[in-house]
């Protein structure tokens, strides 16, 4: 029979585990803070697409690709550090930033970047699959057989929604820049993505709430296309 109710060693053990987890969290957060800074510069490079005429957009792509290279280096470090621990125990620390990094890669790819990962070489308007994004990030995707760092389907879907939001903005700005063809390309692309999202059985979570907004983006882009066709500004060769 013990002299006291609580054996002090119980809580010494707990405290040391808590301290250990705190240290792991701090280490990972440091890496993620760096990633966040690099994401900002990648997004800054990409946002020039809104003010760059379409023929010159390749300069934006080059700048974005080199900015994203820093992100990828940091994701490598994160992957290495995080893979020592249970993935889902800490993924709350980085999931937002991985979604954002994924978005920068998707947008860069859509604008014509990462030609080397696309099977068929083409100009802009391409979607990088989750596997291709993983290839660019140099991380595995949708891991199920082992507990290690990876890109999840949910993170990829979040990034797709961010891409749709950004493309709705780009559709308007393309018109301002005198490119009347791109809104049609965006309209088609976003409608196809929307059709994809519609077959998902999303539960009441943040992904569901964000994906509910896609239809408004679709409409925004349709409005741009409508404005163009009303004024007979739609280039004839690509009319649907």
């Amino acid at each position: 029979m013990a002299e006291k109710m609580v054996n002090p060693s119980i809580f010494q053990h707990l405290q040391s585990k808590i301290d250990e987890e705190t240290l792991v969290g701090e280490e990972l957060r440091d890496i993620v803070n760096l990633l966040e800074k690099q994401e900002k510069s990648a997004q800054a490079a990409l946002s020039r697409a809104h003010s760059t005429p379409t023929p010159e957009v390749s300069s934006v792509v080059v700048a974005a690709e080199s900015a994203i290279r820093y992100e990828i280096d940091t994701i490598q470090k994160l992957s290495e550090a995080a893979s020592k621990h249970p993935y889902y125990k800490y993924n709350g620390i980085w999931t937002r930033n991985i979604q954002d990094a994924c978005f920068t890669i998707l947008l860069c790819g859509w604008l014509g970047g990462y030609q080397e990962v696309f099977s068929s070489s083409s100009a802009s308007g391409q979607l990088l699959t989750i596997e291709q994004v993983g290839q660019v990030m140099k991380v595995p995707v949708n891991l199920k057989d082992r507990d290690s760092f990876h890109l999840t389907i949910e993170e990829y879907l979040h990034a797709l929604i961010s891409l749709i939001d950004e493309l709705a903005r780009l559709a308007r700005n393309s018109v301002t820049l005198g490119d009347y063809r791109r809104p049609l390309q965006i309209s088609r692309f976003v409608k196809d993505l929307h059709a994809g999202f519609q077959i998902l059985n999303l539960k009441n979570d943040i992904l569901r709430r964000r994906s509910d907004g896609i239809k408004y983006r679709v409409k925004e882009i349709e409005d741009v296309v409508y404005d163009l066709s009303l004024r007979d500004l739609v280039p004839k060769e690509t009319t649907e």
């Binding site: 979607l127 989750i130 409608k191 196809d192 993505l193 059709a195 994809g196 999202f197 077959i199 998902l200």
Partner: peptide, 9 residues
Amino acid sequence: SSPFLPMFE
């Protein structure tokens, strides 16, 4: 139909 449907499936 959307070319992305197989992926979404």
